[in-house]
Design a protein around this nucleic acid. Structure first.
Length: 313
DNA sequence: GTCCAGGATTCAG
DNA sequence: CTGAATCATGGA
């Protein structure tokens, strides 16, 4: 593989400082799946048709692009919420009264929801079911390399829906997707004839967006919530995955609660930036840094019978 | 070899 | 409606 010709490092201007540890969590913590580190602390990634390098310098973040490939500071600023809109949203979270959330925020100060492309978020989370983040990254990388358009330097864009729909069985097989291959192909077949699907989905209310997303093959409640949060900027979306189940059970005492009920709690308790709270809790839980004020010795903790959710409608 | 993964789907009750 | 079995693959 030919070596990538990088431009010089330049300062990446952000409204709020991002520590190196938070940058790592943001780029490699399961929001996006297209960032890698070759050398320590230097992140290389692709989003949309942008290829970029990012690192935490001594005086804030720095970025670089690939010579001959369009990379702009503006694209990175948008991707990383440089204007600081999410800083204000953090202030709407109940961290003053919620010590668990407060500790989770302190564990990754400045953590933000990446403003990803809907296409990228949907592909990534179609691959995510029952998989670890490392393996999701490998699947997505294989999809790009096998089917996506070359962007230079050996890096590729993600395949379009048309490219995915046209992929052969053996091509998908080579991406180690397992049963998720059918999810990707099915969704690709639905969306390949809708070039403006993302704009159409973006125009929906969040409730309708989640519903529309769940109509796609391989998209259930959790994947829909992730795509709404990471791809459509719906900060109120509250994905409930295995880590959030653990976090809300251990730290809040909600043992044995069904995911749908935990999602209901999350939205009500955390409010319009529930998804941001979720990401802080997710990161803290995964790092084993979650406060557990209600935790009991393991032999005492048993799943309680789930209380029945209120029937609606 | 066994276990499990940022779950979704299908099926039985 | 809820709960359980099943799904394909690879890393730990």
């Amino acid at each position: 593989m030919k070596a990538v010709a990088w431009t010089a490092w330049r300062p990446l201007r952000l409204a709020d400082p991002v520590p190196a540890q938070t940058l790592r969590e943001q780029l490699d913590g399961g929001q996006a799946f297209r960032w890698n580190t070759a050398e320590d602390g230097v992140w290389t990634g692709v989003f949309g048709r942008t290829v970029a390098g990012v690192r935490a310098g001594s005086n804030g973040l720095e970025w670089r692009g690939v010579v001959g490939v369009s990379t702009t500071e503006a694209a990175l600023q948008s991707y990383l919420d440089a204007a600081g809109g999410q800083a204000g949203l953090v202030e709407t979270l109940p961290w003053r009264s919620d010590a668990v959330l407060r500790a989770a925020i302190a564990a990754n100060p400045g953590l933000r929801i990446l403003r990803q492309d809907p296409h990228e978020a949907l592909i990534g989370f179609l691959c995510s079911s029952n998989k670890r983040i490392l393996q999701i990254r490998q699947m997505v990388a294989q999809l790009a390399t096998t089917l996506g358009e070359p962007l230079g330097g050996g890096l590729h864009a993600l395949p379009t829906w048309a490219q995915l729909a046209a992929a052969t069985d053996s091509q998908l097989k080579a991406c180690a997707l397992g049963y998720r291959a059918a999810f990707l192909r099915g969704t690709a077949q639905r969306l390949q004839s809708r070039p403006h699907w993302a704009e159409e989905f973006q125009a929906l209310t969040t409730a309708d967006l989640l519903s529309e997303l769940q109509g796609l093959p391989g998209v259930g409640p959790k994947v829909a919530a992730c795509v709404a949060l990471f791809g459509f900027g719906r900060l109120e979306s509250f994905p409930v995955d295995t880590w959030v189940v653990q976090a809300l059970a251990g730290a809040y005492g909600f043992h044995g609660w069904a995911p749908a009920r935990l999602e209901e709690f999350g939205r009500a308790h955390f409010g319009p930036a529930a998804g941001l709270a979720q990401q802080y809790l997710f990161a803290a839980a995964r790092a084993g840094r979650l406060l557990q004020p209600f935790a009991l010795p393991a032999e005492v903790v048993k799943p309680r019978p789930k209380s029945r959710g209120r029937a609606r409608r």
